[in-house]
């Protein structure tokens, strides 16, 4: 009984049907939160006394970087679940997480670079935080490439799950890079334990847009996974029925 939900979770059809009603909610919530956080951060949060207005890039740079990392966890954990319990659905989630993570890592690198120019006087520095994020970007690209490298679906899934797990080594390096090395990148300003080193007037819009990005990530991951489910199950009766009904 207790394990029934776990087995159901492995069923692509069950997942597809259960997640349908979530989509409009997630769309509305994530757009509302992102727009609120961005407008607040751009127009109503006070300017930074040192950096002036360029710091307003924080409101997209930080949430994109958070999700680039969180997305990697999701990808690697789904890969592990797929390998261990030999389930189909986790591999579809893993495959869908790769392009989303790649684009979010790209956003955090580009916005960081644009922020660096007026703040540090350079677009790019081979600093520990920035370099480890670049490696994360290449890991995501490697996942996408590996998925397409094999004819056999099963082989592609298993080998990219192993790549995702090996790449986990990079994650603590990214987190700790600002503490271990003397980096140009500033250390963490938001702390879950202890006092954050950012004023509440700047922190609230940041928290709002971070939550907005999490909801947006959930939405987009569902959308990509659902397309992947349809593609892989295209010979099953339930997908054929869906197609017939959509005419």
């Amino acid at each position: 009984m207790a394990w029934q939900w776990f087995h159901r979770l492995g069923s692509p059809r069950w997942f597809y049907e259960k997640t349908s009603p979530w989509l409009p909610w997630l769309t509305v919530i994530s757009i509302a939160l992102i727009v609120t956080g961005a407008v607040w951060g751009l127009a109503f949060a006070p300017a930074d006394y040192k950096q002036g207005n360029s710091y307003r890039i924080i409101y997209i740079h930080v949430p994109a970087a958070f999700l680039a990392l969180a997305g990697y966890y999701i990808m690697a954990i789904s890969g592990a679940v797929g390998l261990i319990w030999k389930m189909k659905l986790p591999f579809m989630v893993m495959k869908s997480a790769a392009p989303i993570g790649a684009l979010l890592t790209f956003i955090s690198l580009v916005t960081g670079s644009i922020w660096g120019k007026p703040t540090w006087g350079t677009w790019w520095e081979w600093d520990a935080r920035i370099t480890s994020m670049l490696i994360l970007f290449f890991l995501y690209l490697g996942m996408i490439a590996l998925q397409q490298a094999y004819q056999q679906r099963d082989t592609a899934d298993k080998s990219s799950a192993i790549l995702a797990l090996v790449g986990m080594v990079n994650i603590p390096i990214i987190y700790k890079s600002v503490d271990w090395w003397n980096t140009l990148h500033q250390p963490a300003t938001i702390k879950f334990t202890g006092k954050s080193t950012i004023d509440p007037s700047m922190l609230y819009p940041l928290l709002i847009i971070v939550i907005g990005f999490y909801c947006f990530y959930a939405l987009v991951l569902l959308l990509y996974t659902r397309v992947e489910i349809l593609r892989r199950e295209n010979r099953t009766q339930w997908v054929n029925d869906l197609v017939a009904k959509s005419k």
Partner: peptide, 23 residues
């Protein structure tokens, strides 16, 4: 934005395009 306009708006613009693409 006190001469930071091009940087801030470029960053927001690129992010907007990327997120729209994802959706």
């Amino acid at each position: 934005m006190n001469n930071h306009g091009p940087y801030v708006w470029a960053a927001y613009g690129i992010t907007f395009i990327a997120l729209t693409y994802l959706l």
